[in-house]
């Protein structure tokens, strides 16, 4: 089981107050990481409109992520990609009962503050948007709202967790409909986890601190992660997932759940596909059920997709520091 400990005593996002005669605390690690635990084994879908959000909820999505443009359109449009319209986010929050997430630019403290004020349930500090600060991510302990961050390696994941991320997702290569990068990233994280676990099990503390220095994170976080043999927060797959089989494969690699970006609403059979991806994620161990899910979609209606080798813009290379 993933512990919910990992806390920072000085975290400004932790707020104690009185409600009538009783004291309550908000924004604790348990509440922020615990929120992500409730999403486990579920599918979070990128949406740009109320109609899409309602389709996602009806299909069984555990949450929706509100964007101004789907990642593949961000790629096509070029220019600067920013956080979504607050008005659209509010309309979606009023229309669905599942949690609503939104993206802010990497390092953009005030887009994050605005999203927190808007009351979104989770903030994604995302490489899909144009980074506002190439060197510094947001210090996420300052927020009561939980954050999710992308990572391509264990080092990136641990750096984001040390900054206060309550959840991690692989970066993949957004907006391509090509799952190859997400697979590479999750396998890399898994390999690195196996490595530090074996170092931990051998009792070689010197090698463990060498890893901490290489990862540029604290020894304590590396030790805790090595002991667990997995990330200390919920870890989802993201980037390029387009079909039920993509989702099931990533679940089988040990992901806790799935983010689908352009894959659903850039396909021509969005409604059926949304439901099929949820089915395949829920019943991924059962190949027959995944086949049934795959049968619900039509490959001729999948988004065309892009080969990562031919891309001019690799979003995954943003915000790796």
């Amino acid at each position: 089981m993933i512990p919910l400990s990992g806390n920072l005593d000085s975290a400004k996002g932790k707020v104690s107050e009185k409600v009538g005669p009783v004291s309550i605390t908000r924004g604790t690690s348990t509440l922020k990481r615990g929120f992500a635990h409730m999403l486990k084994n579920g599918v979070v879908m990128d949406v740009t409109t109320v109609e899409q959000a309602v389709i996602a909820e009806e299909a069984g999505a555990v949450s929706v992520m509100v964007l101004d443009k789907l990642p593949s359109d961000v790629r096509k449009a070029g220019g600067v990609a920013r956080t979504a319209s607050i008005r659209v986010i509010e309309e979606i929050m009023d229309a669905v009962t599942i949690p609503v997430m939104a993206k802010c630019r990497i390092g953009h403290v005030y887009e994050a503050k605005v999203l927190e004020e808007a009351n979104v349930d989770m903030i994604d500090e995302s490489e899909v948007l144009t980074p506002a600060d190439e060197l510094r991510h947001i210090w996420k302990w300052d927020y009561t709202t939980p954050f999710v961050n992308g990572a391509r390696s264990l080092a990136e994941a641990l750096r984001r967790i040390e900054e206060g991320a309550a959840m991690i997702r692989t970066k993949g290569e957004p907006g391509t409909g090509n799952v190859a990068e997400a697979i590479t990233h999750i396998k890399k994280v898994n390999d690195e986890l196996r490595l530090i676990k074996s170092i931990y099990d051998s009792g070689d503390n010197q090698d463990l601190i060498r890893m901490a220095r290489e990862f540029k994170v604290s020894y304590e976080l590396v030790e805790q992660t090595a002991k667990l043999g997995r990330l200390p927060v919920v870890n989802f797959a993201a980037g390029g997932i387009a079909t039920p089989a993509d989702a099931a494969y990533l679940m089988s690699l040990g992901c806790d759940g799935i983010f689908v970006g352009s894959g659903i609403f850039k396909a021509e059979d969005a409604k059926e596909r949304a439901r099929a991806v949820v089915l395949a994620t829920t019943f991924w161990e059962d190949a027959d059920k995944v086949k049934e899910a795959q049968r619900m979609i039509d490959e001729r209606q999948s988004m065309l997709g892009l080969d990562v080798k031919n891309l001019e813009l690799k979003m995954q290379e943003r915000g790796t520091a």
Partner: peptide
């Protein structure tokens, strides 16, 4: 309320023999 309003508080369930426990309320 929404996630930002999620909270921890002490609660009790005396009728089933639990005088004090931590309540973690998430949405």
């Amino acid at each position: 309320g929404r996630q930002k309003d999620s909270f921890e508080a002490e609660i009790s369930a005396d009728s089933i023999g639990i005088p004090k426990t931590k309540g973690v309320f998430i949405r």
